[in-house]
Amino acid sequence: MLTEDGLYRVVLEMLHRAEITLPGDVTRALKRALNRGRNPIAKLQLELMLKNLKVAKKMDVPICQDTGTFTFFVQIGRKLQLNFDLRDVLTRAVTEATLKVPLRTNVVDPITRKPMKSNTGEGQPNIHIELVEGNEFQIDLLVRGSGAENCGRLFMLGPTAGSDGVKQAVLTTLREAGGKPCPPTIVGVGIGGTMETACVGAKRALLRSLKKPNSDPALAKLERKIELAANRLDIGPMGLGGRTTVLGVRIEKATSHTASLPVAVAFQCWAARRASAKLVNGEPRLVEP
């Protein structure tokens, strides 16, 4: 059964695990990048990143001091009845994790810049809820550092820009960002929909493991094409040059107005921190993100 306490404990564990270890697909992609190209500085950056992962795990401390803000994607089966306040559970888990992991207090008022307590406040944590069939329940977490967050872009392209227009939008964003979003990044691209669906799609796309190709063959091909072009930009690890600028490109698509083509680009830094949990035999459990 999905109880308030059970969910709270699982979300707390998700936050802890996401901050201290990276998902296996990301670590493997970083290791593969070590053997790409001959730039010694690029190699050094990747070696330090991998060494850092070992230190963080061993010392049980956050990988990055920018422990970020939190975006949760929650899928709730329409047959499920939650007899608790979901937002309250997620907020309490973030508050507790801030003290216990510990996390840096990053959340401030946007105008006065006054720090908020425990990384919570209006709109924090950020929660997207989707209703699904049956008794399913899944919760996915993205940890968002501001280096990557600040380099995101929304393009309202002309309706006939096509897949080449999408590719150019991503490459423009990558060039402008340079070393700032902590490359090699994972690039989330939201194509179509409206302004906000493109942005949310770009973020949700970042949840998909680097092992999984896009289920739509045309989009899988476009992802591969953009990835190859991106890795020819010579931005490289931390913008110091090299052949690995992105670890992967992840696209989500939605239908749009006949006169519109919104394209949103969201980065996830190399420290691509994420975690997932779902109901397994009726109990919330952490699953491979």
């Binding site: 850092n52 963080a56 956050p62 280096g147 070393g179 690890p237 931390m238 420290a271």
Partner: peptide, 29 residues
């Protein structure tokens, strides 16, 4: 991390200040 803008880099050079990079995200190390 990430460097500074082209104009700022020139100003730093004139002031006799170097820019040293350490990889972002390597907080534990």
């Amino acid at each position: 991390k990430g460097g500074v803008g082209e104009k700022v880099a020139g100003q730093l050079a004139r002031l006799g200040c170097v820019y040293l990079a350490f990889p972002g995200g390597t907080g534990a190390l």
